[in-house]
Design a protein around this nucleic acid. Sequence first.
DNA 1: ATTGCTATGTACGCCAGCGAACGGAAGCGA
DNA 2: TCGCTTCCGTTCGCTGGCGTACATAGCAAT
Lengths: 239, 239
Amino acid sequence: MALQQDPRQNHLLAALPKDEYQRLAPHLKRVELTLGDSLAESGKVMRHVYFPVDCIVSLLCVMDDGDSTEIAVVGSEGIVGIALFMGGESTPSRAIVQSAGSAYRLDGQLLKDEFDRASTFQYLLLRYTQALITQMAQTAVCNRHHSLDQQLCRWLLLSLDRLPVNELVMTQELIANMLGVRREGVTEAAGKLQRAGLISYRRGHISILDRPGLEARVCECYTVVRKEYDRLLSFHRPG
Amino acid sequence: MALQQDPRQNHLLAALPKDEYQRLAPHLKRVELTLGDSLAESGKVMRHVYFPVDCIVSLLCVMDDGDSTEIAVVGSEGIVGIALFMGGESTPSRAIVQSAGSAYRLDGQLLKDEFDRASTFQYLLLRYTQALITQMAQTAVCNRHHSLDQQLCRWLLLSLDRLPVNELVMTQELIANMLGVRREGVTEAAGKLQRAGLISYRRGHISILDRPGLEARVCECYTVVRKEYDRLLSFHRPG
DNA sequence: ATTGCTATGTACGCCAGCGAACGGAAGCGA
DNA sequence: TCGCTTCCGTTCGCTGGCGTACATAGCAAT
């Protein structure tokens, strides 16, 4: 159905006034992304940005020894490729598809041109970037102060907020990569949540059974990020 | 002497073309900052931005239980108050003076006006913000993967890069607050560095004796941030 | 159904950093 | 000079997460 093909399922695109959107629309190309796809590599100049509609993209810092840590996630509320309008054209982090789905791709130069019109688009992208900064800052704090259990809750909730369904396709191994911890640690933490009846796990599929229960366990980091996203990004879809 | 009073000791101001600088100059007010001064409080709307010249400002996330963690530091290469041009007007983090010195203060509305001219100023501020993002991301990674010893090295080097001298006035208690660890942990880590002849500690004063030695011990996080700052912020002072 | 791979569960020793408690010493002010 | 405050050093037991190793169990392809 038509709605399924609407770029305006992405919140940033949805918030654009008509004229700005119509300038961009012809250049938005729908792309299907599958788990593990890379949208940006460390230090590599980016040629496009991506507006997710129903996928989730992780921003990961990768270390010399191969260990990685997720520093933020992006879903339909955002955009992948902020370095293009911030001016750096690349970042030291990678962008990896964490949950398969669709996105709309836009050429980097067109993005910059529209950004430089000092339009609503610029306003939206900058506010979004500030929200993203908050997420990264809170990730740093959480890494320092909170238990793996709580971090897993935070991670699950952040992912759920960006998905239309209550299930995510994700192995414990992958979650461990995201959080930058051991796989065994995730097994144990997930086991606790499962025994508490909050989630149900089966071979690469996590179902959330009791979201309020998760929210009761999660550390404040999730709430801080959530509120800041609401505050900064609660613009209305224009007529 | 006159140079001491030059706002262009701040690199961002220094990089402005003449006309843009002259629009701002009359509104830049020099302020003396002392250790512990707060330039921004969590959630509070900011009225000014600050361009440090020889002080260091820490951006801290404070948790409900009072624990805090530094997510980035700002010196003469940057600006405190990015939320003002990013659009949010406030952030969930605090900005605290970590090393006393001077800065130039600018009214938030004037900043926004100049930013919205889509001028060099905007270009510089956005690039700086991207560098800051890298610092925050790398802080998150470092918090996850590296030992307190290495983090202390990283912290010392990041601070040194922003100071004209080889000594910092800083108690171990404060460093612990910044890093989000116990004071005893800092004592131990600093003791190792001292025994290795890299630093010398005396009651609130740290002298760096062997900077290459520190660089040899520090984790890659420092290097990544350093390189990204160099890459993004190596613009020339215009005639 | 069998095979084989991948995902998950569990166990064990290890260590960095935590929390708490205390002693000593450097500096400051009276 | 004395006394008080702040800062630094050290200890001890504890625990969360690490590294390693191995055992089971879904799922898919043959």
